[in-house]
Structure formats: C-alpha cells, structure tokens
Design a binder for these strands. Structure first.
Length: 138
DNA sequence: GCCAACGTTGGC
DNA sequence: GCCAACGTTGGC
C-alpha cells in the first residue's frame, strides 16, 4: 500500500465534484515526475485530495480504482491517467499552513516541491495528517 | 550537452 | 497580480 497526494484547483474540479461523480479519470498530467508517480500507483492505494489556489488544504482521501493507462486527452503515448473514487472526506481539512507548522511534515513534497501535482506521501506523513484532521479511516 | 529563454504553477 | 521555483524547449 502506497500513499499519494493529488492536487486540483477546486474551481475546476473539487473533492465534492468527485463525490458527485463517484469516479473520475485523473487526466491531463503533463509532468514527468507526476506521470512516474501515477505509473507507480496500485489499485487500492490511497491519495490525499488537495485544493490548490483556493483553500490550500487537504480536504479528503481518494482511492485509486484503476491503474495507469493511456491518457485519452492526448495521442502522445508518453502520458497516462488513473481512475480515482472518493474514499472519505476529512473531518477537518488540513491546510498548507498547518502542514508547514508541523515539523514532522517539513519534508513533505507538497512543501518542498510545491509545483508537483502528483506526489508521494510516506506512511508516517499520511498518518500524521489523518491525526491532524481528527479523521479515522473507515 | 549546455544554457538562455520561455512557459506554467501556485503561494502570497 | 506578482514573482519565485522549476520544467521544457531550442539554438549553438
């Protein structure tokens, strides 16, 4: 089981949009590091859903329901997408400010490499954020 | 293969 | 809206 963090601008696609749609393909990624992370995802892996620009907070958890396959939004075989489904909303969102204020999370990719749209999260980081959000996994 | 120019992301 | 960070492109 691996953990990830995926960013989306909520005015384009929010966590609530995903809840409404029940399942969505995560396409349009055009960055090699992010792409490599998506290729490494396994069915059943969990990812935080982060709202960039507006909110700047982790609002929920999604589950990878389909592993990497060719991105239908391009003919370039270099790019892939995955399918995600909502797993659980956090009881309390965890903001970027909160994350930066927590020394245990100082090495998170979200902080260190703010532009990376799909990043990996360690088990320790994942659990720490769950704790901060006062959320227990169902 | 280096590096300058340029484009994009995202926090502030 | 600005700008820093950083990835990509293309000339040499």
């Amino acid at each position: 089981m691996n953990y990830w963090l995926m960013k989306s601008e909520p005015d384009v696609f929010s966590y609530d949009d995903l809840v409404k749609k029940k399942r969505e393909l995560w396409d349009g990624v055009r960055n090699y590091t992010a792409r490599n992370n998506m290729r490494a995802m396994k069915k059943g892996d969990l990812a935080f859903f982060y709202h960039s620009n507006i909110g700047k907070e982790i609002v929920g958890i999604v589950k990878i329901v389909k592993e990497a396959y060719p991105d239908p939004t391009t003919n370039d075989a270099a790019w892939v997408c995955v399918d995600v489904a909502p797993k659980q909303k956090l009881k309390n969102p965890v903001s970027l400010v909160d994350i930066k204020a927590n020394p245990k999370l100082a090495n998170m990719k979200l902080v260190k490499q703010s532009r990376l749209s799909v990043s990996d999260v360690t088990k320790e980081e994942f659990e720490e954020i769950l704790k901060m959000s006062q959320t227990s996994l169902k």
